[in-house]
């Protein structure tokens, strides 16, 4: 499941479109090479796999560098007894960490913040009208946290939902960007997240070209936001293609 031999690891690296600019690593006031030797605008190789958990309706495993997550989707199944009638479906999300997920966290816990953000990111894409009176449960476990956890979780969850056959308007892809000094770095790792001046996380529907979720913290100038958004949009559409390929592969494999 985690490291199947022979599984291809597609890489993707977004390019800045429409503008020519000096390479950012020549920026004289910042002497920084990324811990894993990537370029500033280069994402980590993405390994995606559907069908990681046999007992779930749909599931996916995602590995971006050291960030490893599993998402299972259960349902649509009967809502909790206490719930009142609803003519649209419900979505229930939960994110938890393993005790060994990061070297500093120390204990495995439910992550309320990520649970609600995952919920917000997904609720707009799922066509809730297709499963009235029932609930779809999206449960995620972060096996190892290596940075950009939330965006990996969201992309992986949308893959799991697709694997479960839940109707969606589009696949959902998420990418984060960190701002350190004057540089923007896509898909930051934990070390970079620890010293960032600002973070930018965007989820979008690549085919519809719509942003469903956007969070910014730290200090940002408008040109920086423009640039980060362009980077994210680019990376999202590439990630979307990788996810689509992954789904195509899994269906063609099951047809055989």
């Amino acid at each position: 499941m985690a490291a199947k031999p022979g599984a291809a690891t597609p890489t993707y690296s977004p390019k800045l479109v429409g503008r020519s600019r000096l390479p950012i690593f020549k920026d004289s006031d910042l002497d920084w090479t990324r811990p894993d030797g990537r370029g500033f605008h280069q994402c980590r190789p993405a390994l995606l796999q559907t069908g990681a958990v046999s007992s779930a309706s749909g599931s996916a495993y995602a590995e971006f560098g050291n960030t490893k997550v599993i998402v299972s989707v259960f349902g649509p199944r009967e809502s909790k007894k206490a719930m009142t009638y609803s003519d649209v479906g419900r979505l229930n999300c939960n994110v938890s960490y393993t005790t060994f997920a990061s070297s500093t966290l120390g204990q495995g816990t439910d992550h309320k913040e990520y649970s609600s953000m995952l919920h917000q990111a997904l609720e707009g894409v799922i066509i809730m009208e297709t499963f009235p009176k029932t609930t779809v449960d999206v449960f995620a476990l972060v096996l190892e946290s290596g940075g950009s956890d939330l965006s990996v979780l969201i992309s992986c969850a949308s893959l799991a939902l697709a694997d479960a056959g839940i109707m969606m308007y589009d696949l959902i892809t998420a990418v984060s960007v960190s701002c350190i000094g004057k540089s923007l770095m896509i898909d930051p790792v934990t070390e970079e997240e620890g010293c960032e001046d600002g973070s930018f996380m965007m989820t979008c529907m690549p085919s519809r070209y719509e942003i469903t979720q956007l969070t910014i913290t730290g200090e940002w100038t408008t040109p920086n936001i423009n640039e980060a958004m362009q980077l994210c949009l680019d990376a999202c559409s590439k990630l979307g293609e990788i996810m689509r390929d992954c789904l195509k592969q899994s269906t063609s494999a099951s047809d055989e």
């Binding site: 707009g124 894409v125 979008c204 070209y209 942003i211 956007l214 969070t215 910014i216 100038t221």
Partner: peptide
């Protein structure tokens, strides 16, 4: 005039240009 934080609520998507 720097942006210090941004949060989006509501499920429906927005075009990038609208957000800018």
């Amino acid at each position: 005039g720097h942006i210090c934080g941004l949060t989006k609520r509501g499920g429906s998507g927005l075009d990038p240009s609208v957000i800018l």
